[in-house]
Design a protein around this nucleic acid. Structure first.
Lengths: 102, 102
DNA sequence: TTCATGTGCAACTCAACAGTTGCACATCAG
DNA sequence: CTGATGTGCAACTGTTGAGTTGCACATGAA
């Protein structure tokens, strides 16, 4: 699942979709009007985001509204900070070790 | 540049490389011994990570050591948390609005 | 020098993905 | 019902990237 999140985040268009969805739910057609791509392209991207759990569909009549799901974003962010923290901690240990030597 | 970071993070092998590099610098050959892939594959992945600024090369004799650069990880994480925060804030505003109505 | 090890470059295959187009189906307004 | 709008599904093209292989070059050790 985590993999699907990072795969989804790899595409610039999908990141733009996330930025747009952060302002509120929308339909694929509404998005396609403001982007230089087909509605089908938008639908596919939203599908990838849905597989990653970053977006949820909601049908109202004949319209399908997509809304952001922030949980996966938090998980991805947490993994990144954890990785960075492990490295920084290692640098800190090395620094202490060098200072101890002198 | 941000795009290269997310593209680099999209591959499971590269994320494993980052995990490995968080424990300390290594060579491509050393990594290839512990992974079921060719050295060349590792070199290519490390190249992608280098383009993204997440890894730095350092030559010692005939060996090339790769070490983690944590800055881009922090930037990527910051973007994710910012996006999530914007959405959460919007939900909060909506909640306040609804409570005000009643 | 000679050999082994580590690296760099280039070409190739294979699979996955972005984006498009065309058409069918569903839903709302008149 | 009729037309307009929104959506879903499928097939197709073009491109990108992962991984491999082969060979040449550089460096350290005997």
């Amino acid at each position: 699942m985590k993999n699907a999140v990072f795969v989804a985040l790899a595409d610039p268009m999908r990141r733009q979709l996330l930025e747009r969805l952060a302002m509120g739910p929308t339909t694929a057609t509404g998005i396609a009007d403001r982007f230089p791509v087909t509605r089908q392209a938008v639908v596919k991207h939203l599908g990838a985001l849905e597989v990653a759990g970053m977006v949820a569909k909601e049908r109202h009549g004949r319209e399908v509204h997509y809304r952001l799901q922030s949980a996966p974003l938090g998980e991805a962010s947490a993994w990144l900070t954890s990785l960075s923290a492990r490295w920084e901690q290692r640098l800190l240990r090395l620094k202490r070790y060098v200072e101890e030597e002198s």
